[in-house]
Simulated assay, not measured.
Amino acid sequence: MPADHHDIVYPSAVPFILLHLAAFAAIWTGVSAASLTLCAGLYVLRMFAVTGGYHRYFSHRAFATSRGFQFVLACLAQSTAQKSVLWWASKHRHHHRHSDTPEDVHSPRHTGFVYSHLGWLFARKHDEADLTSVADLTRYPELRWLHAHENAPAVALAALCLVVGGWQGLVVGFVWSTILLWHATFCINSLAHVAGTRRYVTGDDSRNNWLLAIATMGEGWHNNHHAFQSSARQGFRWWQVDPTYYILKGLALAGIVRALKQPPQAVVRGEQRLGAKVVHRTAEQLAARFSAERIVQALRTACSERELSALRHALSEAATGVLHPHLPSRAALMAEARTLYARTPSLEDIVERAHQMVLAAVRHRLSTASG
């Protein structure tokens, strides 16, 4: 277990574990067609509340709606027992600011698959929401009330299921659908950064996964989402099924939501130049594939101390203009980049920056060794 996982608060996981155990109560309650229908209906309704509400509306403001429907979305989303709308949005916005960096709250690259899937939920440092990052939401007293009573919607729905469907309604309808919702949602944090395809250069490990897109009503087009976060539509191509977007379109026709944001065609075609942060992160990934330690070892084996001294001086004078058979050329980095990344007008910028990083790392190691 990585060192930064020592703060997991296991007692806070008890309700999570108990609900999973409660699913086995269906052995005694039985399973009927009515209870399975309730389970499926609650899954679809609340998955939309998570994808359309928690994610696309509250986290990314991908569309506009009335204050009344905003509250409905928040209540339905919180009925999934995934903490409050303010907590969820604040953590998700933090994730996008630091996606797949060491500061990310749930990156499989840095914290492992299991921790990114669910372990981070029980860590002390993630207990509280950063309300400064959701100031646009905290101005609504009803959302602050839901934040203070985050379990109220889930408890109310569980009670309603018990009244309407008896014990089968509670166990199969509520408990089963809630557990399925949890793990489908968590898979976007974990599996969608590990398995799938990457059409767009985003500076992180986000991937498109058609199976997750089906399970999460469109959220599986995760690389698309990271390419243009504020889009109400995450299935950019006609064949990329996105039921959440279809529902939003229907709600827009009914006048319930409006101003659905769309990805520019330049983004869809991969023709838009990338921002400085994405270029820098992608360059770091590319540079990491060229080990400065191995390069320096090869240089020390092949070169005399005099040659190494001259090379150190040359590297300090011109970061990318030095040619040496043991130093990776810019062309070598470009060849590697073309195998790793989708086509983008910013590929030259990425390679140039990565080349500077590699040579700077070699220069630093040579200087340290000489000292």
Rank of each mutant, 00 (worst) to 15 (best):
H98A: 12
R56N: 04
V201Y: 03
E219Q: 13
A129W: 01
A23V: 10
Q356A: 14
W182M: 09
C161Q: 02
L251H: 09
L274D: 02
M357R: 14
W238N: 08
L180N: 00
K83C: 04
K249Y: 05
H147R: 09
L299C: 10
S370E: 10
E352Y: 04
C39G: 05
A77E: 03
M47I: 12
A259C: 10
H98P: 06
M334Y: 10
A159E: 03
L260D: 04
S32T: 15
L131K: 11
L131H: 10
S116P: 10
P264G: 09
E128S: 12
A287F: 00
H147L: 02
K91W: 07
G112C: 06
V296I: 08
A184R: 03
A215E: 01
L180R: 00
P15C: 09
W87N: 07
T65S: 06
T197I: 10
A49H: 00
A252K: 12
V172S: 12
H60W: 04
A266D: 12
N151W: 09
E128I: 10
L45A: 14
G41E: 01
T138S: 11
Q272I: 05
Q82E: 14
Y200N: 03
E103W: 04
V171I: 15
R365W: 02
H183E: 04
A292D: 06
N209W: 00
M217S: 08
L73N: 02
A215G: 08
F228R: 05
A26S: 15
F63Y: 15
L191D: 00
Q356T: 13
M217N: 05
G52T: 08
H364R: 13
A331T: 13
G53I: 07
H364I: 07
Q240T: 02
G250A: 06
S107G: 10
Q262D: 10
L160Q: 04
G166F: 08
H183V: 07
G68M: 03
R109T: 14
S116H: 03
M217L: 15
G220I: 04
Q356R: 15
L359G: 08
Y200P: 05
L181W: 00
I27D: 01
N224W: 08
K91I: 09
A314K: 09
C75S: 11
G165V: 07
T29P: 07
G255W: 04
L36K: 06
A331M: 08
R330F: 01
R67L: 12
